[in-house]
Nucleic acid binder design. Structure first.
Length: 485
RNA sequence: GGCGCCGUACCCAAGUGGUAAGGGAGAGGUCUGCAAAACCUUUAUGCAGCGGUUCGAAUCCGCUCGGCGCCUCCA
């Protein structure tokens, strides 16, 4: 099955064919850095990260660009709204650039924790003012924009195709838009390319139209085309950005170049919390820094990838708790496989083979079908069940274990990022003091058990449980330990 | 008001024309001093409801009910 993906532009699943054979040029709208990242950011960027990882896994050379918005993203009505970073700066009594710096770092910290592979380029809007001005000049020259009192607006009426992404006609948009009587725009749906800055506005640059700052939409067009060319393969972002942000990007880009802007538009759906939309105004945002106090980043990733990127993800304690147990089940198998690899002395004569190629192809079929990660994960659980069964019967050879380990590392680790490279094993780092102490405790308890001092051995086990360490007595008499929450 | 999405077991969640994946929770069993883990068995004659198309529908069409999103800041 060839790779197919749902293209918002055509509202269909389409076979993916990049412009250049073997290479993919991809752009995803990054965060506006004025606050810490929340579970919604995680869903978005983990989803796109998994897409990038998978594209690379199947052999594409991917150039992945994700911007950092540090200027021009206004609150509320485009004309009156305050710049988010300036507002946050006033709140924290810091320069907007300091806000940008701090929250950019915070964003990357959170994403690194989640195992999100860094984009190849993370361009900042403030670092590309020249490119944005050039684009606005082009649009003015071609007659798609007009200047009013030091600000430049895109003239939506000049673009016949405006609305093709979100499926709205300009009339429809107009009827639903609050009309600002004081607006200097010719039409309510025209949008700002360049805004005149009042003298007290901290973020402003010299332009042909006087001191000002770029509109929010223009940064993505200018920066994506600078690094990926006038037409590129994939543009992604959250569904909430489909309109107006992406619609405006298409309009200004295609009018400026007279070429198709993007071939495949991918939009990921949003996170709800207990069935309700998560938003700043409702105050139910769930910050990653808080969430990761309770859950491992792998659990968060697993939780996200267990639902499809185009579906909403409902966050609740019970849902992520269930995910935590599910992932633990998968990781248990991986641990057992690694342990079996270390202990297996020679190949058993009675071992049963596993058809790993079939699992592999089921996995890629799932991923090729619009990145169906829930189904891909289900395949890993199927592998897990079969392997567990064979391990329990001792019917698995070292070669098979090696292949199974590779499969988990590749599909669960490299592609999905839900299986850690270094599993927390009691055999790793045998030189460290923690391991030595644990071994001592286990030995003492074993002695107690030999003497059938059950209350003493249970006291040790219960005590360790309280401290977040679980003991498991295996059939062969050995006792293993692992951390639990 | 306009545009769009969704409704699958106790919960989460795939499947979009060929007879219901996977995970959690529950029940029974194997193993164990007891646990835990693991394994086996089990839990939707049915996919919001009602009609229609079809040899055949959760899947396509129509209507009804219910939930949600965008249009205004958000990934």
């Amino acid at each position: 099955m060839p790779l197919t993906l749902y293209n918002t532009l055509t509202r269909r699943k389409e076979e993916f064919k990049p412009l250049t054979e073997g290479a993919v040029r991809m752009y995803v709208c990054g965060p506006t850095v004025y606050g810490h990242s929340h579970i919604g950011h995680a869903k978005s960027y983990v989803s796109f990260d998994t897409i990038v990882r998978y594209l690379r896994y199947i052999g594409y050379k991917v150039t992945y660009i994700q911007n950092i918005t540090d200027v021009g993203h206004l609150l509320g009505e485009t004309n009156e709204g305050e710049d988010r970073l300036i507002k946050q700066g006033k709140l924290e009594q810091k320069h907007p650039m300091q806000i940008a710096e701090e929250y950019t770092k915070s964003y990357f910290d959170d994403m690194d924790t989640l195992g999100v592979v860094r984009p190849d380029i993370s361009p900042r809007a403030t670092g590309h003012i020249t490119e944005q001005i050039e684009m606005v000049k082009t649009l003015l020259e071609k007659g798609f924009a007009y200047e009013v009192n030091g600000s430049v607006y895109f003239d939506v009426s000049k673009d016949k195709e405006y609305g093709k992404l979100s499926g709205r006609s300009t009339e429809e948009v107009e009827s639903g838009t609050r009309v600002d009587v004081k607006s200097e725009k010719r039409h309510p749906n025209d949008f700002a390319l360049w805004k005149k800055a009042e003298p007290e506005h901290i973020m402003q640059w010299q332009s042909p139209w006087g001191m000002g700052f770029p509109g929010w939409h223009v940064e993505c067009s200018a920066m994506s085309m600078k690094y990926l060319g006038e037409t590129f393969d994939i543009h992604g972002g959250g569904m909430d950005n489909q309109f107006p942000h992406h619609e405006c990007e298409i309009a200004q880009s295609e009018c400026a170049t007279n070429k198709p802007f993007v071939r495949y538009w991918i939009h990921n759906n949003l996170v709800t919390v207990n069935g309700q939309k998560m938003s700043k105004s409702l105050g139910n945002t769930c910050l990653l820094k808080d969430l990761s106090k309770t859950y491992s980043p792998y659990v968060i990733r697993f939780f996200i990838l267990q639902s499809h990127y185009r579906g909403t993800l409902d966050f609740s304690e019970s849902a992520i708790g269930g995910a935590e147990k599910g992932l633990e089940r998968l990781l248990n198998t991986v641990r057992e496989v690694k342990k079996g690899l270390r202990l297996a002395v020679s190949d058993s004569n009675s071992h049963k083979p596993i058809n790993l190629d079939e699992y592999r192809s089921r996995f890629t079929d799932a991923m090729n079908d619009d990145f169906n990660t829930p189904q891909a994960i289900a395949v890993l659980f199927d592998v897990s069940r079969e392997v567990n069964g064979l391990l329990a019967q001792g019917q698995v050879s070292k070669e098979t274990l090696t292949s199974v380990d590779e499969l988990f590392t590749e599909l669960g680790g490299t592609v999905l990022g839900i299986i850690p490279q270094q599993l927390d094993e009691n055999h790793s780092g045998e030189e460290n003091i923690e391991h030595q102490l644990m071994q001592l405790i286990i030995d003492v308890r074993a002695e107690a058990r030999t003497q059938k001092l059950w209350s003493l051995s249970d006291k040790i086990r219960d005590g360790l449980q309280q401290s977040g360490i679980a003991l498991e007595d295996k059939k062969d008499g050995a006792t293993t330990w692992k951390r639990v929450k």
